[in-house]
Design a protein around this nucleic acid. Structure first.
Length: 597
RNA sequence: GGUUGCAUAGCUCAAUUGGAUAGAGCAUCUGACUACGAAUCAGAAGGUUUAAGGUUCGACUCCUUAUGCGACCA
């Protein structure tokens, strides 16, 4: 397709040169797909040329169209509507495009000239709670963006920065010491991350009770919040941790260990993975060194109380705290350390942070601070800022208990897929284990597609019923289309019809076939676009368009009942390429596709 | 208070980055299985793109202002 477009653009340039005697830079010759209601496949907008060529838009279109039909074999016809010149490309040429497509099927790397060495950091959980719906959007986005960048030929490292230290985990630890009675994930029969979450909730409950009591005794609300005994104890515990207190550190190790087991199970279940783990407990000290470096270089300053700040007013930001007066670190301190470590490890030319848009300011600060420090890698940092997920009832709030748990949600979508498959699936012959894998594949396909089809930058609404839907613009619709094609290919194999059909005798196509070929030919452009904008939504839309186009072919033309053997073989080949495009693009989303369902 | 993002069919989302009559899905209504898989396909209906100005051959897209919702910084 790119070749065809190049040819057409060159021809357009030549046409203008010949007819009007003027040079038009190739960059101004942009072709766009012709709208469905008009004949043709490529459209040139002629309005922009009226000034330089001194003619009306229709006249220009007519003249160029006429010249092209006469002089360019690929152009079989044209029509002009106002300032739009629609070019019709002969079916034989589209068959040609299909032939080229088979040489580099969907899934072969698409070089774009973009970054070659990339780190994508995503997931990045806190260790005091299990993962929830918001993390799922993050995980699916991060995994998918990494795969998309890989598809452009880049070397990509998936990194997970675990927030394993700080006051939050101390809260869970404290509540566990007070109420846990030696409970373990094994003894309680719950996943480790959920166990830690249970004690975090317990902490909050008892802490709030203490605050309420203090307030009842006449203490002012902010003071009560700061001076409630449990809060003081948690802070004390954090200091002990920083001091390396053995009992505290060993409890910390134990509870985090449980949490990691739980996370691993969830990651495995949702099909995401990491090449490298970072732990904030291992980077915050390095961050403190960077702060010291900034002080020495004179780009940071110390206030009277001993706290360290950076002035970012010139960058349009504000003054920002980098180290507390007592010398303990804040979020940004450890982020400075992690950024440094990542660069030492990978020397990336692009470092993506998949983080919700509530941290836009924080990420601007991080980048600005690294620039102040003169770090060469500052410019390579890119914040993939995604919108938060809302529920029909509004925002997710842990205090109101409206947080959607990831493990539970996965269970629900898999159950829904199972119920639907038992009702209308074609799964006879599958072992029980294969069937379970299928339900998992379909349930997760529904969930992932639902979360990925929306532009990452935009806030989105999570509707539980729609997320398990299998019809319309959904993952299972696309998975179904693949399973359907698989059935075709099985039958073709039985009949001994090869998938590498000879195309020489194919000179005309059904409209739906031509449209499908056009879709298939877009794959490389779609991958490039998705990589450029770091948007899996682009790929999601493409997979849907391909499936939709195939389903139209499927109802409009016959495959095995076709009398013409060459056409029959062509349609089998077309089916095989479609399956490949669906599998490859869904793969970029982290969604698997079944052979039957 | 300061900074910033968003607003498109009843609902959830698109719109090739300034191009034609703004497109899909869900929901509603109507058709298509004795067939290669109906988790499908075809069709109907649904819009003053929050409002008012501006820029130009052309604006959902860019610029003002207003309204509403959100986030962040104290």
């Amino acid at each position: 397709m790119q070749q065809l477009e190049q040819t057409l653009k060159a021809a357009l340039g030549a046409a203008i040169q010949q007819v009007f005697g003027q040079e038009v830079p190739a960059s101004q010759l942009t072709l766009q797909p012709t709208r469905k209601d008009f004949a043709g496949q490529f459209t040139l907008v002629t309005f922009p040329f009226t000034k330089t060529l001194g003619k009306g838009p229709e006249q220009i279109g007519q003249a160029i169209g006429e010249w092209l039909v006469a002089n360019t074999p690929q152009v079989s016809g044209y029509n002009v509507v106002k300032g739009f010149l629609n070019l019709e490309v002969a079916d034989a040429e589209w068959v040609n495009v299909f032939g080229q497509l088979r040489q580099t099927p969907a899934g072969t790397p698409v070089p774009t000239g973009g970054p070659q060495n990339v780190v994508v950091e995503y997931s990045s959980p806190n260790t005091n709670k299990p993962l929830h719906l918001g993390h799922l959007r993050n995980n699916f986005l991060g995994y998918s963006v990494a795969e998309i960048l890989k598809a452009t030929g880049a070397t990509v490292t998936k990194a997970n920065l675990v927030n394993d230290r700080g006051i939050h985990i101390c809260k869970s630890m404290l509540a566990y010491l007070q109420y846990g009675q030696g409970e373990t994930p094994q003894s309680a029969g719950i996943k480790g991350d959920h166990l830690a979450g249970k004690y975090y909730v317990l902490f909050e409950k008892h802490y709030r009770e203490q605050v309420r009591q203090l307030e009842a005794e006449g203490v002012l609300p902010d003071v009560a919040k700061r001076q409630a005994p449990m809060m003081l104890e948690a802070q004390d515990m954090l200091r002990q941790w920083e001091a390396g207190d053995e009992a505290v550190v060993s409890l910390w190790r134990q509870m985090n260990g449980w949490v990691y087991e739980g996370f691993d199970a969830t990651y495995k279940s949702i099909g995401v993975d990491f090449d490298k783990y970072y732990y904030e407990s291992g980077t915050y000290l390095l961050g403190k060194e960077r702060v010291e470096e900034g002080l020495q270089k004179g780009v940071f300053f110390k206030k009277e109380d001993g706290s360290v700040w950076v002035d970012l007013k010139e960058e349009g930001l504000d003054e920002k705290l980098l180290l507390r007066a007592d010398g303990t670190s804040v979020y940004i301190t450890q982020d400075l350390g992690t950024a440094e470590l990542k660069y030492q490890d990978f020397h990336y030319d692009l470092s993506v942070y998949v983080i919700a848009d509530e941290q836009n300011y924080h990420m601007q600060v991080l980048k600005a601070v690294l620039k102040k420090l003169g770090k060469p890698y500052a410019d390579a940092i890119y914040h993939l800022s995604y919108g938060m997920v809302d529920l029909p009832s509004g925002k997710m709030k842990s205090r109101e208990g409206t947080v959607v748990d990831a493990d539970e949600l996965v269970r629900e979508v898999v159950d829904a897929a199972k119920a639907a498959t038992l009702e209308k699936g074609k799964t006879e012959g599958l072992t029980e284990q294969e069937a379970d894998q299928l339900y998992h594949m379909l349930g997760l396909g529904a969930l992932k597609y639902y979360l990925l089809k929306v532009d990452p930058k935009k806030r989105m609404l999570f509707n539980p019923e729609e997320s398990v839907s299998l019809e319309g613009h959904t993952g299972p619709f696309i998975q179904y289309s693949h399973a359907r094609i698989s059935a075709i290919r099985r039958k073709a194999a039985e009949l001994g019809i090869a998938e590498d059909a000879d195309l020489t005798s194919i000179t005309e196509l059904h409209t739906t076939e031509r449209e499908l070929v056009q879709e298939l030919a877009r794959y490389a452009a779609v991958v490039a676009e998705a990589a450029r904008t770091q948007s899996p939504a682009v790929v999601a839309q493409y997979a849907y368009d391909v499936a939709k186009a195939y389903n139209r072919v499927y109802t409009e033309v016959e495959i095995f009942r076709e009398a013409d053997a060459a056409k029959k073989a062509f349609r089998v080949a077309l089916s095989a390429q479609t399956a490949q495009a669906i599998k490859a693009s869904m793969g970029l989303l982290g969604i698997q596709v079944p052979e039957r369902m």
